[in-house]
Amino acid sequence: MSRKAAKEEPKVHPFDPGYTAEPFLTLCANYPEETVYPPDQFRVEWGPIFHRGRLDGSARVLVIGQDPAQHETVIRRILVGEAGRRVQGLLARLGITKSYVCINTYLYSVFGTVKAATSRNPALVDYRNRWLKALLVGQNIEVVIALGQAASTAWTMWKASPDGQASQVPFVAVTHPTQPESSSNNDKVKLAAATKKMLQNWNAALQQVHQNVIHPDVVTPLVPYGDTWGADDRLRIPDDDFPAGLPLWMRENDGWARRTGADALAKRRNITITVSSGVVS
């Protein structure tokens, strides 16, 4: 008589349960639309994208990004592409592997240039400040990191509010994670120089705030970046940050979503998704 095969235990797939408690339920139900985010400056047709990370009060570091790109549009979480992997590496140098939360300056993907009047629209600023209040006032955030100029400006606007003036949480602004690529125009020499300059900027920021992370997930001595990306500088985004049921290849790879079309309008209307090589035989 043949021996029955041992029953295989089902795999566990951690996920982000979403917006299950106040004030985030209301924030996600009542958000600014086209009167605040004009369609000539934002891809409002793809909808708003709110956050990534912990909303349960356990976050120790708040990251403020800029705006969602095509991968974020599909996954419905921010900073899930190349910039997100670089941010994971930055957080790890502070000993933070899970106790973080990320929001963006803008809910919608930027199309072209954001006009100054739009960026200062009280409805846009006030809504973003409601998120910052929910994450900062009476919470456990020990450090705030802004990625790029737009995020730094968002923080300045928050600090001008009564709640912002009362907040004393340490803050640092760093160069945006993909600025080297956007500034080098496919020139390898320029890319190398811009990457080195950015990592020097990140090292200075880490020196400034490392001591302020009092409750890291892992006690980590500060190790500076080199002149270019090392093997452990771009880290996988944890499954707990993604919505339930997201396929593994979307979580582990990048480059599977591209804006495609013959002109700017066509690219605005289309995101082409390609299953990663090797997934389908």
Rank of each mutant, 00 (worst) to 15 (best):
residue 1 M to S: 10
residue 1 M to T: 08
residue 3 R to I: 15
residue 4 K to F: 13
residue 6 A to K: 14
residue 6 A to I: 08
residue 15 F to R: 02
residue 16 D to I: 00
residue 26 T to M: 01
residue 28 C to N: 09
residue 29 A to I: 00
residue 31 Y to D: 09
residue 31 Y to H: 12
residue 33 E to W: 04
residue 35 T to A: 12
residue 38 P to N: 09
residue 46 W to A: 07
residue 52 R to C: 10
residue 52 R to T: 10
residue 53 G to W: 03
residue 55 L to M: 12
residue 56 D to Q: 02
residue 57 G to S: 02
residue 59 A to C: 07
residue 59 A to M: 11
residue 63 V to Y: 02
residue 65 G to L: 06
residue 67 D to P: 00
residue 68 P to Q: 05
residue 68 P to I: 04
residue 69 A to I: 03
residue 69 A to T: 12
residue 72 E to A: 04
residue 73 T to M: 09
residue 75 I to M: 04
residue 76 R to G: 00
residue 78 I to K: 01
residue 82 E to N: 12
residue 88 Q to S: 05
residue 90 L to A: 01
residue 92 A to C: 04
residue 93 R to C: 03
residue 94 L to K: 00
residue 95 G to Y: 08
residue 96 I to K: 00
residue 98 K to V: 04
residue 101 V to L: 00
residue 102 C to R: 06
residue 105 T to M: 03
residue 109 S to V: 01
residue 114 V to T: 09
residue 116 A to Y: 12
residue 117 A to W: 08
residue 118 T to A: 03
residue 120 R to Q: 15
residue 121 N to I: 11
residue 124 L to D: 01
residue 124 L to V: 06
residue 127 Y to N: 08
residue 128 R to Q: 14
residue 129 N to C: 13
residue 130 R to G: 08
residue 131 W to M: 02
residue 132 L to W: 03
residue 133 K to A: 15
residue 140 N to F: 00
residue 143 V to G: 08
residue 143 V to H: 06
residue 147 L to M: 14
residue 147 L to A: 09
residue 148 G to V: 11
residue 149 Q to H: 13
residue 152 S to F: 00
residue 158 W to C: 03
residue 159 K to D: 05
residue 159 K to F: 00
residue 161 S to L: 12
residue 162 P to A: 13
residue 165 Q to G: 15
residue 165 Q to N: 14
residue 167 S to P: 01
residue 167 S to R: 01
residue 170 P to V: 09
residue 172 V to W: 04
residue 174 V to N: 11
residue 175 T to K: 05
residue 175 T to H: 04
residue 176 H to C: 02
residue 176 H to I: 00
residue 180 P to T: 13
residue 180 P to H: 12
residue 181 E to D: 11
residue 183 S to A: 15
residue 183 S to L: 13
residue 187 D to F: 04
residue 188 K to C: 01
residue 189 V to P: 00
residue 189 V to I: 07
residue 190 K to A: 15
residue 191 L to A: 07
residue 192 A to Q: 12
residue 193 A to Y: 00
residue 197 K to Y: 07
residue 198 M to D: 07
residue 201 N to S: 14
residue 202 W to S: 05
residue 204 A to D: 15
residue 204 A to C: 06
residue 209 V to L: 02
residue 212 N to G: 03
residue 213 V to G: 05
residue 218 V to T: 13
residue 218 V to K: 13
residue 220 T to R: 12
residue 221 P to H: 02
residue 222 L to N: 09
residue 224 P to H: 08
residue 225 Y to G: 07
residue 225 Y to M: 04
residue 226 G to A: 14
residue 227 D to P: 05
residue 227 D to S: 14
residue 228 T to N: 09
residue 228 T to S: 11
residue 230 G to N: 08
residue 232 D to T: 10
residue 233 D to N: 01
residue 235 L to E: 08
residue 236 R to V: 10
residue 236 R to L: 14
residue 241 D to E: 13
residue 242 F to T: 12
residue 242 F to P: 02
residue 244 A to W: 08
residue 244 A to V: 13
residue 244 A to Y: 14
residue 245 G to I: 14
residue 246 L to A: 10
residue 247 P to S: 06
residue 248 L to T: 15
residue 251 R to F: 03
residue 255 G to W: 10
residue 256 W to Q: 07
residue 256 W to F: 06
residue 257 A to L: 12
residue 258 R to S: 02
residue 266 A to C: 04
residue 266 A to V: 03
residue 267 K to M: 06
residue 268 R to M: 05
residue 274 T to Y: 01
residue 277 S to N: 11
residue 279 V to L: 06
residue 279 V to F: 10
residue 280 V to Y: 04
residue 281 S to D: 07
residue 281 S to V: 11
